[in-house]
Design a protein around this nucleic acid. Sequence first.
RNA 1: UGGGAUGUCGCCAAGUGGCUAAGGCACCAGGUUUUGAUCCUGGCAUUCGCAGGUUCGAGUCCUGCCAUCCCAGCCA
Length: 559
Amino acid sequence: MTDKNVTENFITHIIDEDLANKKHNHVVTRFPPEPNGYLHIGHAKSICLNFGVAADYQGTCHLRFDDTNPEKESREYAESIQRDIQWLGFDWKTNQFHASDYFDQLYAYAEELIEKGLAYVDDQTPEEMRENRGDFNRPGVNSPFRDRSPEENLALFRAMKAGEFADGARVLRAKIDMQSGNINMRDPVIYRIRRLHHINTGDKWCIYPMYDFTHCISDAIEGITHSLCTLEFEDHRPLYDWFLDHIDIDCHPQQIEFSRLNVSFTITSKRRLSKLVEEGIVDGWDDPRMSTISGLRRRGYPPEAIRDFVKQVGVSKKESVISMTVLEDAIRHHLNQSAPRVMGVLRPLKVVIENYPEGQVEMLNGANHPQNESFGSRQIPFSREIYVEQSDYKENANRKFFRLTEGREVRLRHAYYITCREAIKDEQGNVVELRCTYDPESRGGTADGRKVKGTIHWISAEHAEPIEVRLYDRLFNHPKPASLENFTDAINSESLEILPNAMLEPGIADQDSEVVYQFERNAYFKRDKTHETDKPVFNQVVSMRDSWSKIEQEVNESN
RNA sequence: UGGGAUGUCGCCAAGUGGCUAAGGCACCAGGUUUUGAUCCUGGCAUUCGCAGGUUCGAGUCCUGCCAUCCCAGCCA
């Protein structure tokens, strides 16, 4: 991977040309969220692209809140957006703006359009407007108010601003072309009357500008060079250019559209995400199964890994769905290098080592990372009674099962070789305890001459720390839940599995909760913020790659 | 039936007329290994939506066709 934030793509090619032609001598981009919801993995692509491109070209990237619709916007959302961008590792420095910072200028540009005869106040009802707009096969019809004089329009528009009309009674429209094949050009509304309290301007305004009018002018005011947005705005580009061509402004940014990021088995729509929260299907916006940035954060996904993922995915104009395995691979790749290894037993099975002295405790050394000595090592207590994973014992196991079964010897990670002698069952026939013997000569996990295929993890029973583990699986069973009539039909009822009786080696649970650990042979885990339980809770970040389950399946099928 | 876009391996994605169509994920086959993890090696598109055409030469240029997506908010 290169040291660039963004790999070469059609947008960087355009920038390269613009720099080579001297169209620009610097790059300014912007990330323009509307503060009306939480950011999700799809926004991460836009954030990484805009901030990444700016950084790669020694330019700047602005954070601009697109706050033109007070009906839906809130401070809380704006704050969560700031937190998420920072967490992802980007810094807008002093370049934080709001579209609402420009309301006065926007208003003046609207008057300019009116004076030029390029905008008019329309008194039609929304229903009349919709009817007269026409449709894909039928051109629009001019509004009966379209030919008002600039003087009359100006007086009316000022009256709109002064609050002389009821909400929704009139709008200001651009006078473009009601016959255009592009419906956005059929005299789009640019101002509407709304008596609403705005998060930034309070009660100063009762008219608010629309997106198309606001966005291009905000970009121009800020000196944005390349205005990157998603594909659905392609049809709006002629309008973006029209406004800037018809007002007196000396900057004309280039709008460039790229395709959204879609990840298989996930959902990225505010409406659907909030339905999951409202209906209690998940534990809130930051539920570890959510594709929100706050959900990924709580889950334990490292921001560096998310950035690498976005980089790997690339940028193009093709609508696509990236396999979730690419995301998981990026997470594993990063965590494999950064996560200290510890031993945690998810489903404990007690083992008594019959020939180990009762009451004796030995401290064994265990490396914290097998490939990186700088992680150091720790002392792990070993004693006569330990816990191992239930799945590491099997009755009547075949030769491919490199773990415990009667008469088979395995290595305990960082410790001794043990041989399984007997499985003790309860009345129902469940194995509740294993009786084993150990080889005192194999301390540290080495014994001359003998090859032991299996190594399993364990925890000294006396020293084990009880924890709760939460295992996560994909929230949906369908690769494209949003394509279904009702996306909730695809909800995976087994996306959360709680293991209340897990055990962790001592000295880990109460450490820095931001550390992601690898519970060897199990998965990566990060301590949850929750305090609702008496035990520490660990969330599974991502599982380990598992080639055993495939072998096991093949063995079962051949039997 | 209007307008705008996109079609290169199962999923992404390089390729900007000329050496044998990058790379990642997935998958397959081996090797190393005190995590059945990691790591390493090898395999994986005679072909670029389809059909014609231009050219000594086309995924790259031209024409036609097909498929998919977006647009009819006083949302962004």
